[in-house]
Amino acid sequence: MDYGYINARIRGMHSRLFDRKAYDALIIRQDIPSIITELEKTPYKKEIEEANILYSGITAIEYALRKNLVNTYRKILGLVQGELAEKYIVIFLNRWDVQNIKTILRGKKIHASQDEIKECLIPAGELDEATLNELLKQPDVRAVVDLLATWEQPYALPLTDYIDEYSENRDLVILEYALDKYYYQKALEAAKGKSTEEKIVRRLIRREIDANNIKSVIRIINDNVDWDDAKNLFLEGGLRIDLERFEKMIESGNLESALKYLDGTPYYFLSYLPPEALASGRISVFEKELDSYIISNNTGTFRLDPLSIGVIIGYIWAKYSEIINIRIIARCKHAGVSDEDLEAELIHV
């Protein structure tokens, strides 16, 4: 496959991402209207103008950011359509499909209205808005699963396997676990080959699985969850965290000892966090470090071989982190958080 044209386009898009100066220009703004004015001078102009018609204030910014994310990912999908790279890009965008299906299932379980559920959907994955709308029209959880199966959507597989168990227990976690595990299993399956592309993609996925497993360990230890329940949270296929290490970390009983098991892995930095962070046991502290690590690594693929999938993946993650950072700035300004605290919340700038 010739990455020349696609990667040139992506590099063009990458050059329009926010740099430190652009973030500073947003941070010095005092209120939401002036942030909106500032965003109108950026590539978010089109979405901001559209959002201003429908909403106002922070809601308009958030709507515009979501819309921009969806438009960007759809544009990338359009660029790689029919190419080999499509298979790999789809892996990263499928997480939005999983999230959307979960949202629909959760909404249907509590009989939330279609509009209410629709508000929470981000059609940035393979399932477009029309498909999601059709799913929304279904009366209950089973009907949603049946429709996915009728369309032969891959996500129907884990859901049909566990729908009877769900019907007995009425516990949606069963279906959500199945979807999460299927997503990573499918992603690893799609990238199991020996080509450079597949090696890059596989490495990123396996690292993400590790990060998920570490986050699970921290939550399990904080909540004193039994091993019988805890093992359900383990995701197979990680780079450095296998079931044995996962079990040892949980059985160590406290966070400090558990994180010691990360020595010698790329995630060792977690055990060297300040003692107060360790003592607080706050998952968000560890999660922020892990997310920064993952985003920094994934965006770093942009600088690998210029004629590889790495450029596209790097851009996808850079765009994702840019949108998170703009949202952090807008939300913090909205809530009157000091610039110093706001800066501390930004992810990988």
Partner: peptide
């Protein structure tokens, strides 16, 4: 509640939301 009883899979929901 504990992370296992909240009704969603913790794998797909961030720790910030849990917190």
């Amino acid at each position: 509640l504990t992370v296992m009883d909240r009704g969603y899979s913790p794998i797909g929901v961030s720790g910030r939301i849990d917190e």
